[in-house]
Design a protein around this nucleic acid. Structure first.
Length: 107
DNA sequence: AAGGTGACCGGCC
DNA sequence: TGGCCGGCCACCT
């Protein structure tokens, strides 16, 4: 199996198709650490150094771009999502449930 | 080895 | 939805 918890998160996040988004909790649950969605966020923090992980497709359960602060600018994450067809208004994804992608189905 | 930290979640009001 | 609180686990120093 893969070495770190991080790599598992990366592997899963990388599988997120364009125009789709998911939540930390969903990823955490898919990995088996449902009660520790914080770990997913922590993994994303490390993903910042990897740049192969579409972290902009990962938001919290409310559809808020909580992690946009960790991106380069302030609207980078939002623009990336909009570029893929995901509407974002005021740091929040519109029709979040429609764009929601369930990692459990893929894992 | 121990403590601190974190891009969260769920429950309650 | 929004604010507050507790829990939870892996990584870092």
């Amino acid at each position: 199996m893969e070495a770190n918890f991080f790599e598992r998160v990366y592997t899963l996040v990388k599988q997120i198709p364009e125009g789709k988004v998911t939540s930390y909790g969903a990823i955490a649950k898919a990995l088996g650490t449902a009660k520790s969605a914080r770990m997913v966020g922590w993994a994303m923090n490390a993903s910042h150094t990897i740049d192969s992980v579409p972290a902009h497709r990962v938001v919290n359960r409310k559809g808020l771009l909580t992690g946009k602060h960790h991106f380069d600018g302030t609207t980078l994450m939002q623009q990336l999502l909009e570029n893929e067809g995901v509407k974002v208004v005021n740091n929040q994804i519109v029709d979040f449930d429609k764009h929601f992608w369930q990692p459990k189905l893929e894992i």
